[in-house]
Design a binder for these strands. Structure first.
Length: 174
DNA sequence: TAAGTGCGTCGTT
DNA sequence: AACGACGCACTTA
């Protein structure tokens, strides 16, 4: 599944104040590797372990902060920091790559995502992979709906999913 | 139509 | 071996 060296496993965490509360970003040596919603229990394994906050990470964090502000406002995200998705399996990373390609205001169904990665029938597995997305909002798993524009699920809570989609102008059925 | 049931399918635990 | 952030076919009312 994963095979990270101790070195790569080091992560630092930095807060991001937004109008929706304080998010927390996690960085590995390779890039942004996690993002938590406000008021969320910090997962043990992803929690920053006191790694040094390098100037490189500070630069990434500025990019992340801008990206998050834009995303939360439903605006176009122009730039993302490097992402470290090495915590995911091959399958999950393929799914997340598709999610990144969904433009703001657009949506795909779980089935369409499965199609994109050439695993048409792995629909439910795609749902699981979405739920395992370590960087919600910036990797827009909220833009994946069930068929017929129904909302589907969201690990961060359906309220967030509805809010994010509404700000992008996506109409839901329900 | 709308709402409910059953089941295939497959990555993950 | 069991469980989903699904999707479809197929009842019912």
């Amino acid at each position: 599944m994963k095979d990270e060296s101790q070195f790569e496993n080091q992560t630092s965490e930095l807060p991001i104040q937004t109008r929706d509360g304080e998010f927390v970003a996690y960085y590995s040596r390779k890039g942004l590797c996690g993002l938590d919603f406000p008021d969320r229990e910090v997962q043990q394994e992803r929690k920053g372990n006191g790694a040094e906050i390098t100037s490189e990470i500070q630069r990434w964090h500025e990019v992340t902060t801008r990206a998050l502000e834009n995303a939360l406002a439903g605006r176009l995200v122009k730039e993302l920091p490097p992402l470290d998705l090495s915590c995911g399996t091959d399958f999950q990373q393929r799914v997340w790559r598709v999610l990144k390609s969904i433009a703001g205001g657009k949506t795909l169904s779980y089935g369409e995502v499965a199609d994109e990665i050439g695993a048409r029938k792995a629909v439910r597995a795609v749902g699981r992979a979405c739920g395992a997305n370590p960087i919600p909002v910036l990797i827009p798993c909220h833009r994946v709906l069930a068929s017929n524009q129904k909302i589907g699920g969201f690990s961060g809570g359906l309220d967030w999913k509805r809010k994010l989609l509404a700000r992008e102008g996506v109409l839901l059925l329900e």
